[in-house]
Design a binder for these strands. Structure first.
Length: 491
RNA sequence: GGCGCUAUCGUCUAACGGUUAGGACGGAGCCCUCUCAAGGCUUAAAUACGGGUUCGAUUCCCGUUAGCGCUACCA
């Protein structure tokens, strides 16, 4: 059974790319009945923040996928230290006493890579031991075996055969001068200890992997299988960054924007992976069944957000699709908190009546605030009385329609069919088109022309509210300047 | 600079040498219709460039270009 891990470092907010890496790992684990491990890679004590850790948990919990095992690297420093000693003891690592300040200047990146400081790499063990014993600070570097072998290679499950000349791999650090392990050391020691079978991570680690293979070998443990994922990039082609691209890269932006966790997962899956059968709207189980590393692409995928809109239009569309696929009860329940945030006195029972009327008119849960406002308002916010006048009609027609509607609604049965029959009969009686009959009523009752279908809306609103709002509309009409000639259309 | 990865409509992608280069989002238009949606239909839109290999290249190879990544005592 495969064991995979997602290993974020708490140095920033959980962003969209990390979320996707988590999801792909999770999907791989579930597809194969394996184990999903969450490991916090927090060896960089200076840069870790609690806020960042909270953000990671917030985001992951919202995704609602879960994990099976949890670890923190800061709890496992002894293991890392021990692993470094194992490597050092074999002579595959050496102490580098170059002061941190001098290092930058001495490494020359002019032509070719910096590989190592010869006097450090070649330093006799006795001298190294003596200086260490004297308390001189040092970093422990991996002694890349350039003489013994020409290259390091591994097979990537996404990118295929990978090979790199040892002459192009520098003597990277294992332990810092403060004794703490570097990412490479801690990560590999933990992956070996936790028996990780597949490392699925961003392509930015592809070239690091050669170093990791060397570490696994030095540790005497079989390297896991590797699968690197294409990166997610911003619309300008640059890599996603919180600083440059703002909220568009943060998972919580989608959560707060009214996305269903699963539709976000669905969206992210489609970035860099495809089931190859043209299907896009997929349930969680379908995703689990369909997911394979063979389906992962090799080129970077762009998250198509804009400056004025953090949401990729495909993500929005997928969200709308999933909203429509949700049982109304679920939808109603999830809508309630968003309605309450908007200041509406919403409860589940009331929302259950409204949800069917708006489910095809909202793209995000947050849209409930603008789409369903008039269901909750005690009194409609002010609107332009001119809106009450129907197409090809005038003030008199509007008044007649509303008078008629008022009298009909006093006795009509408040159901779709009852209202349908009554109001259509009213239109016939007044000799106006149904559209001319319905629009003034809709505006009177909703405060605007754009709204859900009329009969259902009236039924949910209830007789009292409808009558009251129509009465108010009539008053507004009466207050309109009668003498004003109809504003003719210019053409 | 060095090393590496990548390259199909604006975007996400399909086509494991032979297709009128397919689907989706977004755009445009039409239909349906009590408004708005939803839904249905139609439409514009792509193989980065140059060489090979081959009867035949989106597909395989080389080069160019471009983008990205790594080149930290960050991860």
């Amino acid at each position: 059974m495969p064991r995979v891990r997602f290993a974020p470092s708490p140095t920033g907010y959980l962003h969209i790319g990390s979320a996707r890496t988590f999801i792909f790992n999770w999907l791989f684990a579930r597809h194969h009945g394996g184990t999903m491990i969450l490991r916090i890679d927090d060896t960089d004590v200076e840069r870790n923040t609690q806020a960042s850790l909270d953000s990671i948990f917030d985001g992951l919990r919202w995704l609602d996928l879960g994990w099976d095992e949890f670890y923190r690297q800061s709890d496992r420093l002894d293991l890392h230290e021990q692993a470094a000693q194992t490597i050092f003891a074999q002579g595959i690592a050496y102490r580098d006493f170059t002061p941190m300040s001098a290092e930058a200047e001495e490494k020359s990146y002019g032509d070719g890579p910096w590989l190592y400081f010869p006097e450090m790499r070649e330093m006799p063990r006795a001298e190294s031991d003596r200086r260490a014993a004297a308390g001189e600070p040092f970093v422990l570097r991996f002694r890349v075996p350039r003489e013994a072998r020409a290259s390091v290679e591994f097979h990537d499950l996404v990118y295929g055969e990978q090979i790199k000349a040892t002459a192009d791999i520098e003597d990277f650090a294992l332990l810092r001068s403060n004794g703490l392990p570097t990412y490479h050391m801690a990560s590999c020691a933990d992956d070996a200890d936790l028996k990780i079978s597949h490392i699925i991570r961003g392509q930015d680690h592809l070239t690091n992997t050669f170093k990791h293979v060397l570490i696994f070998e030095a540790l005497g443990s079989e390297p896991p299988k590797f699968a690197h994922l294409p990166l997610l990039i911003a619309p300008d082609g640059s890599k996603l960054s919180k600083r440059k691209h703002g909220p568009a890269v943060s998972v919580t932006t989608y959560r707060d924007g009214g996305f269903l966790p699963h539709s976000y997962v669905n969206f992210l899956c489609l970035l860099g992976w495809s089931p190859k059968n043209d299907r896009e709207v997929l349930t969680r189980q379908e995703l689990v069944d369909l997911f394979t590393l063979e389906g992962v692409n090799r080129s970077n995928a762009m998250v198509n957000f804009a400056e004025d809109n953090p949401f990729d239009s495909k993500a929005v569309w997928l969200n709308a699709q999933h909203i429509r696929n949700l049982p109304v009860e679920d939808l109603a329940r999830q809508l309630v908190p968003f309605a309450q945030t908007a200041g509406f006195p919403a409860d589940e029972a009331r929302m259950l009546q409204i949800a069917p009327l708006i489910r095809e008119r909202i793209e995000t849960l947050r849209d409930v605030a603008t789409t369903a406002d008039f269901f909750f308002a005690a009194e409609l916010p002010p609107y332009d009385a001119a809106e009450l006048i129907p197409q090809k009609g005038d003030l008199a027609m509007a008044a007649a329609v509303l008078q008629k509607a008022h009298s009909l609604l006093r006795s009509a049965e408040f159901t779709h069919d009852g209202l349908d029959a009554a109001l259509r009969a009213g239109a016939t009686e007044l000799k106006v088109k149904t559209g001319q009959m319905f629009q003034p009523i809709r505006v009177a009752v909703c405060g605007r022309k754009v709204a859900p279908p009329l009969f259902e809306t009236l039924a949910v609103l209830g007789r009292e509210t409808c009558l009251r709002r129509i009465e108010r509309a009539l008053v507004m009409l009466a207050a309109m300047p009668q003498a004003m000639p109809p504003v003719g259309k210019l053409s």
